[in-house]
Design a protein around this nucleic acid. Structure first.
Lengths: 199, 199
DNA sequence: GACCGTAACACTAACGGTTAGTGTTTTGAA
DNA sequence: TTCAAAACACTAACCGTTAGTGTTACGGTC
């Protein structure tokens, strides 16, 4: 039932729209390009565009589900009895390295230049934090209260967000995760705190 | 130079708009009331409304500068040599108590019901976190790195945000601040960690 | 007390994101 | 082959917001 022609066509249309949007946005700036232009460039109707993307901002953060799933899997798919925080630290380090790569620089420059995009990203991260909190709370090896799980999830998202803006992103991840390690140790006494946060 | 008639008139107009907006929003719901209606109710032009408030959402968070200033002052105006985190905990507890009071319930119900308002609030809190981080970094008694200061500021804002949604807000503040205390102790060895977090 | 610059306010008209309503084509399954 | 669903298209609007252009009303100054 999965890989029918319909789904492939749909995915192709979606990709065509996202590609056209990103190209125009990078060429002329996010705010300077209207939805009607993007739709025309992708050769679809405006309503079709909005059936694939919930908003103009969503065109930029096309694969945000990747981010969410990677964080959740860092919790659920980690080795048996591996402590939580170091696993999350590794994942955040990888994500930060990925988004501070030179190839991604133009996109992030564009995002930083637009208040609308920055605001959208933040509220997106909040959703991710909720998913992460749920994953942490669901782990039978961990004994945090719901509040502590939500707090740690937020802290982890904060780490990503702050590291992205820091002068030395990798060092910032290390520094903040030392703090997170300590915070988690307070509420989850079972965890052995392996908090070596080298650069 | 301050209390001229002009400034009083301006403040009166601003208040008239805010009052009309809040009344309409609570009566019929935030999304169901248009800007043009609010302006008509307050008997001003739409452009006048927007010269007093930057956006529709700003009508609801009329006095958000209070929040920001109270947090900053909790840092700058605390007793000499008083440790940072307990001072912030007291302030957050007061703020949470204030916004979970029964009288404020209808407003927060309205905010929780509107994604636009929730998103706006979050990005507002981010600004507050930046101000708080600056205040912490500026304190000569404290020896945190800029990254550590920003992280702690975010954590404190997270505490407010999470506590507001928790079943027992006061207990949540206590719980999260135990974590913050530990996180801060890691990066600021000079601080004596007086982390008694009662209910 | 007359004068002037400024800032509050008003009005119209538009722009840009988003959606409702309606209809057409494509496609997977019965 | 037939059918229901779903992708797509088009028009026309709604709503928040802003530009452009005036018109008052006020505070400080001579």
């Amino acid at each position: 039932m999965p890989t029918g022609r319909r789904e492939r066509k749909k995915a192709a249309t979606r990709q065509k729209i996202a590609d056209a949007a990103l190209r125009l946005f990078l060429e002329r700036g996010y705010e300077a390009v209207g939805i009607r232009e993007v739709a025309a460039e992708a050769d679809v109707a405006v309503t079709t565009l909005f059936s694939h993307f919930a908003s103009k901002e969503a065109l930029v953060f096309e694969q945000d589900e990747d981010f969410e799933q990677r964080l959740v899997r860092a919790v659920t798919d980690r080795a048996a009895h591996e402590p939580l925080v170091p696993a999350l630290r590794r994942e955040i380090q990888a994500l930060v390295r990925h988004c501070t790569a030179d190839s991604a620089a133009p996109i992030w420059r564009m995002i930083d230049a637009s208040p609308a995009l920055r605001e959208y990203e933040e509220s997106m991260r909040l959703r991710h934090a909720e998913s992460l909190a749920a994953a942490i709370a669901a782990d039978p090896d961990l004994s945090g209260t719901p509040t502590a799980c939500r707090a740690i999830a937020r802290f982890v998202i904060d780490a990503y967000s702050l590291a992205r803006e820091a002068a030395d992103p990798q060092a910032a991840v290390g520094e903040i995760f030392q703090m997170i390690e300590a915070a988690w140790a307070v509420t989850c006494p079972s965890g052995n705190s392996t908090g070596t946060a080298g650069p």
